[in-house]
C-alpha cells in the first residue's frame, strides 16, 4: 500500500524512509496518513522519535519544515534528516577545504588575494599587496607585502616563505613586521615559517622545526575523509 514512505523500527529510533522516486506531494500525503494511524496506535504519554532518511533526495529547508509541521507535536519529534547525496556546491566546498588552494600569480600593490582554507602561492607578493587565507599560507617566490594567515581567527595557521625582504606577517590577530636592513639581506636564503607560539607571541622558526611545532600541518583531514 505504502510506496512513498516506509516506517521502520530501529535501535536508534524510528526510521522514516522517503523513497526518492516518489513525488514530494505524495510523500506529504502519506506522512499525514501515517501520522493519523500512529496517533491511533500509540498510547498517550509515549514519546516517539523519528529520524528521516531522504535517500537520493536533498530536501530544502522549507521542505523539511513542511514535514516537521506534520509530524512534530507533543508526542512525536524528529531528531535528524539524513541524505545520501549532497549538492554540488557543498561538494565543491568540501573539496576545496580538503586541499590547499593553488595560485600562480603576482599579487600587486593594492590587490588582495583571498583564500578559504590553505593557500599555496607560486609567485610574488609585491609591497602593498596582501594575501589572506583562513588557513595557512605557503609562498614559493618572494613575499614583500602582507601575508595574513588564519584570517578568521585561526591562530594555529602558519606562514611559510623565504623571508628575504621587508614584509609583514599576520596570524589571526597578531602582527609581525619582518625588517631586513641592508647589512643582513644576504644573511640566509633558507625557508622559514612564522607561527604563534604557546605564549601567543609570533615567532619565526627554521623549517626543520615545523614538524615538531605544527605536527598537524600536512595531514589534511578537512571535509569527508
Amino acid at each position: 500500500m505504502n510506496n512513498a514512505v516506509t516506517l521502520k523500527g530501529r535501535k536508534e529510533g524510528f526510521q522514516l524512509i522517503l523513497h526518492s522516486s516518489a513525488s514530494f506531494e505524495k510523500i506529504l500525503e502519506e506522512i499525514k496518513e501515517l501520522k493519523v494511524q500512529l496517533k491511533n496506535d500509540t498510547q498517550t504519554g509515549h514519546e516517539l522519535n523519528f529520524y528521516v532518511k531522504t535517500g537520493n533526495r536533498e530536501l530544502t529547508d522549507s521542505e523539511k519544515k513542511q514535514i516537521e509541521d506534520i509530524i512534530v507535536d507533543d508526542h512525536f519529534s524528529i531528531s535528524s534528516f539524513q541524505s545520501d547525496v549532497i549538492s554540488i556546491e557543498d561538494a565543491l566546498k568540501l573539496h576545496q577545504a580538503s586541499r590547499p588552494r593553488l595560485e600562480v600569480r603576482t599579487v600587486r600593490s593594492g590587490q588582495i588575494l583571498d583564500a578559504q582554507g590553505d593557500l599555496l602561492l607560486i609567485g610574488e607578493v609585491h609591497p602593498g599587496g596582501t594575501v589572506r587565507a583562513t588557513g595557512s599560507i605557503f609562498v614559493i617566490g618572494e613575499l614583500k607585502g602582507i601575508a595574513h594567515a588564519g584570517f578568521s581567527g585561526n591562530e594555529s595557521a602558519i606562514v611559510l616563505a623565504n623571508f628575504r625582504h621587508n614584509a609583514q606577517v599576520r596570524i589571526g590577530g597578531n602582527v609581525h613586521v619582518i625588517e631586513k636592513s641592508e647589512g643582513n639581506s644576504e644573511q640566509s636564503d633558507e625557508i622559514k615559517f612564522v607561527c604563534v607560539n604557546d605564549l601567543h607571541i609570533i615567532e619565526v622558526s627554521p623549517l626543520h622545526d615545523l614538524k615538531t611545532i605544527r605536527p598537524e600541518i600536512g595531514k589534511h583531514s578537512g571535509g569527508l575523509f
Binding site: P127, G128, N166, A167, Q168, R170, V175, V177, I178, E179
Partner: peptide, 17 residues
Amino acid sequence: IGLRNLDVILGLENRII
C-alpha cells in the same frame, strides 16, 4: 588613497597595519 607613497618614502611601508 589607492596610490599611497608617503609610507614608502619614509621607509615605513611594512609597518602598516
